[in-house]
Write a protein that binds this DNA or RNA. Sequence first.
DNA 1: AAATATTTAATAGTATTACTATCATTCATA
DNA 2: TATGAATGATAGTAATACTATTAAATATTT
Lengths: 234, 234
Amino acid sequence: MELTLKIRMNEKLFLRNPEETELGREIIRQSIILIHKSGLEAFTFKKLAKAIGTTEAGVYRYFENKHRLLVYIVSWYWSWLEYKISVHTNNMKDPEVRLKKIIQILGTPVKDDVDTKHVDERLLYEIVTWEGAKVYLTRHVSTDNKLRFFKPYKDLCARVAGVILECNPSYRYSRSLASTLVEMAHQQNFFMRNLPSLTDFGNSKDEGKMIVFLEHFVFASLSASEKKQSKKTP
Amino acid sequence: MELTLKIRMNEKLFLRNPEETELGREIIRQSIILIHKSGLEAFTFKKLAKAIGTTEAGVYRYFENKHRLLVYIVSWYWSWLEYKISVHTNNMKDPEVRLKKIIQILGTPVKDDVDTKHVDERLLYEIVTWEGAKVYLTRHVSTDNKLRFFKPYKDLCARVAGVILECNPSYRYSRSLASTLVEMAHQQNFFMRNLPSLTDFGNSKDEGKMIVFLEHFVFASLSASEKKQSKKTP
DNA sequence: AAATATTTAATAGTATTACTATCATTCATA
DNA sequence: TATGAATGATAGTAATACTATTAAATATTT
């Protein structure tokens, strides 16, 4: 039996749905390859068109500009990751075990995945660590936010925040801790590989250590909460 | 008495030292204003030249490209911030008090500063939250790192890591916790103002709450360390 | 099957960006 | 008075980010 995962994307992100045509799927597939290879700055629709054997105008029929295309790709990743997390944690009763699993999934660079035909999740993981923040670090965040471009990201963070709350219902920063965790999983990985002195994982390039760090600070926050709470409250 | 703070910048960042000429200082001053106003994407040397009444070529004589200029500005900020932290914490003996002060400085958007004439630190703070990450999120991180472009940022993180270690000499993730803290201070602020559902601070736009969160997770990590350490060690 | 409409592709063109090069001018210094 | 550094003015190029126009293919209607 062959299962194909299909993620329903925000319609505002594209002019024509790339999932629906062969050319559209090629645009996604090759974008991922090219952005991964040379980064967003060097990526242009002209190069993309050439790589897939169509014209610039052909690409513009699907996406208004390369930023939208990036948002599409990154959003797809967040949706896929949330799906992955739900699959791997659904049958776990203990919220702490679930949170640990989530941290492990967040912190482990994707190795391989057979869920989808035309999307390489391994490359996507790296694109998200390098370019992910650029999706919201623009002057049109608010507009994009109103168009619900960040919903997949927010959904993921909200899910993580939910599990955090299950672990400790009196914890007061579940959402901030969740977004911190999701960001850190990618950022510490980036630092470890590129600016290692900003981390304690050296050049080992071993995500294992990083995951221990993430677990450490998340669970420390959660358990400290109960004790320190009274102190901080006016 | 009038004091002027002068920060020694990495010479590789510029072609001609902007501190040394009137035009150079104008380039810095107006860059900050323009990048703050419309963001890095919309910022061009042509617009900058027009704003200060010179020509494009005039700007190019100082900076190779706008990315270098951004690195210059952001690095200046990190150096200035480290200086500010050192001034405000030098006389504090208790490392925990010092760390709290650091968190407070990191988390409070700069209001006003008279240290420098031609640099508006208030605008800089916002530029760093919006564009700061783009400084290292490029394909040439490693090259830039070898040119020591990130030294000011690393120095700041190292200083914070040092204080963290003073608070708890057996804590094993001082550097990762430091870079997490520095990043979060800006990021949670950005989220609070632009994607508030990712935080627990609502639209209050009150950094006070955020600072409490930062303090909470830093000190939770530090105090949990001693207890949990034995558990995690093989 | 012919006529018409609709979709899709290919070509060309424009405005802006990110530079580089050249040469003339100002202005201080030796 | 000669020298040289800093600036200014002008022009030019290659690439980028798009738009508009036209041509070809496909589907629909009569």
